[in-house]
Design a protein around this nucleic acid. Sequence first.
DNA 1: GCAAAAGTGTTTCCCCTACACCCATGG
DNA 2: CCATGGGTGTAGGGGAAACACTTTTGC
Lengths: 369, 369
Amino acid sequence: MEPTTQPKVPEFHVAVDVVALTIKRNLLQVAVVQRKGTQSCIRDPKGGVVREVPREPFDYALPGGHVEWQGESLVEAACRELLEETSIEVKPEDLVQIGAYGDVGRDPRSGRTVSIAYVAFSPDFASPFAGSDAANAKFMDVVEVLADPNRLEFDHNQMLRDAISRVRELMERTPIALKFCDEEFTLGDLRHVYEVMFHPAYNPDADTLRFADRIRREESKSDSSIAERQIHVLSKAFSESSKNELMMTMPMNDMPMGLSSGRKMTRDQDVLAKVQKLLEEEYRRASRVSTPGEKSAREKMKLSFDAANFARKAELIEGFIERIPGRTRQSSSGTGKPAQLYRRGRAEKLDPPLIIPRRATKPAKRTAK
Amino acid sequence: MEPTTQPKVPEFHVAVDVVALTIKRNLLQVAVVQRKGTQSCIRDPKGGVVREVPREPFDYALPGGHVEWQGESLVEAACRELLEETSIEVKPEDLVQIGAYGDVGRDPRSGRTVSIAYVAFSPDFASPFAGSDAANAKFMDVVEVLADPNRLEFDHNQMLRDAISRVRELMERTPIALKFCDEEFTLGDLRHVYEVMFHPAYNPDADTLRFADRIRREESKSDSSIAERQIHVLSKAFSESSKNELMMTMPMNDMPMGLSSGRKMTRDQDVLAKVQKLLEEEYRRASRVSTPGEKSAREKMKLSFDAANFARKAELIEGFIERIPGRTRQSSSGTGKPAQLYRRGRAEKLDPPLIIPRRATKPAKRTAK
DNA sequence: GCAAAAGTGTTTCCCCTACACCCATGG
DNA sequence: CCATGGGTGTAGGGGAAACACTTTTGC
């Protein structure tokens, strides 16, 4: 209720941030940068305000920056910043707005900054490398980014969580998951995408620290040479050479090698396999009904990831996928029956949404038996 | 890809807009203002850019304005603007962010304006009256606002539609609808809230013009004295006196008088009843399966609004509502069996969401019969 | 008695889950 | 032959929609 005469509008900065999510080797990864300078902008645990503190080597930020000229739309700015800071190139239509973040204390540097966050979800981001304003740029496992001691600057932590929820929504109601499949894909390929994205480790309330710890423990057990402090557990699990070698044998863009096994087991691959086993095991733990006492939200996460039923469900959705008669492909692990190939349908919306916890999954009658 | 040296950040304005939605007499209404000045900012049908054109008496805008001082958060600004322009008072926690609207051409006036839109959904807004910057402020039927010849300035049209979708989501997953019920309410009361909010007339693709036309036709048939041009079809359907009189007889805040009938039929009430019959009929039309050929998105809107099953569903959701043993209340229309009273439960999230089109409602076997 | 609304009971349908089982492949 | 993953078949449990019917009120 100030005097309404000629309001003294404060100096505003409008920024954009991009949560670039992708899936590598069955793990959800996000593009992060390490900003230049000696100070990081970290949220004060008590008070909630962001303060400048001495920069640590494990401080990260999402790529982003200011809208820079008059005629630049918000999405355009987001694309540009992503490109500049990480060399990742996306089209404006690939960005989905998450929302505006405008808390007063969210940027201690100068004036007042409102940031519009976008999410990009794509399998074929270029390998990031640092550009302007960033000393470093790379993809990191999401659980790793969110776990101690790593820190995300500003309110990027919240943005990341919001982005994941948004992508989950998109995966329920749009064929966005097909971006992670080749033109011809198997139902197993498709299912993997959903399994990763809906993994309980990425739930808002997930204990990412525990996850990350277990992953780290696996890593140290393998006494892999790259064990520095805690960063980069998996993004460097492969040396460049063996990575390329692996890529050759993978039918899909960076797709799995399955949840277990693998043809040529290097030591690094061995670590990887164990980590993935952990995730898989954790997924089961989180979705199984153990004690009939508490059916928390987590429990509802029980998804139709039973291979058989997932397939039926996906095929049932009109315009989602269509089978390619006669064409099959050997499963990625090399074993098993060759799978039927599909291609994407014409639908832009998935009408019966693919994944809905439609009932509060009863503890199953099996308890009686 | 401009030179990245010292980016010339443009002059940005940060604004907020509020979509204040409420339900009056079974119709969804939104708070709009008429700005002062001789020019309206209307989107050019061809080109999509907003231009200043001579103001017409049927031009409206959502309440909103600039964030005015350094320490003012976005929600605070939204609250303040709503209060200033419409005298409606809301608490920050009642506002839900819809998103940021930052298209380049969205405000032709000065510099570049990014607006953060919020939605408020509450039954007990004060009666709005114009404040600063607004020559007029009132609640209007949503269908009326969206229909010719009325115009919403800037991109407020889109904001309104987005707001409605957001509220629908909230009604599925949170007990927000209970805000429209008294502390003690019947399942019929609750059901009405859902029926209004999910009415096909408010679907993004709805033919609001047709709706508004039919409502207007009803109005002119009744040769009600208030028939001006097209504005205020229903918001003035009651004279102040009979309005107060009606309020007395209504058990809930501005709740219905049922979808038909009414104890004391004044002429205005007669019009109203007819209009509501139209809406009801339209709802049925839109949700019935007519030709088994096209099962459009509209068709999926078929909701569980069958009274009996809605009640069962609501009672099933844990923590949503709890019955008050022994207490009943006469239905608002005065007729019918007195209904069981309920009070709100402790749940903040509705766990099996109340309304989900879980199957692509088959054309019903009835075709065969 | 009749209309209107609430509430209860019941039937039918079919979705979804789970499980069993077969298939095809590499090793 | 076994392990592995793909795929089909199917039984049963259960939710929900639809419908029938009763109850209680005002007129």
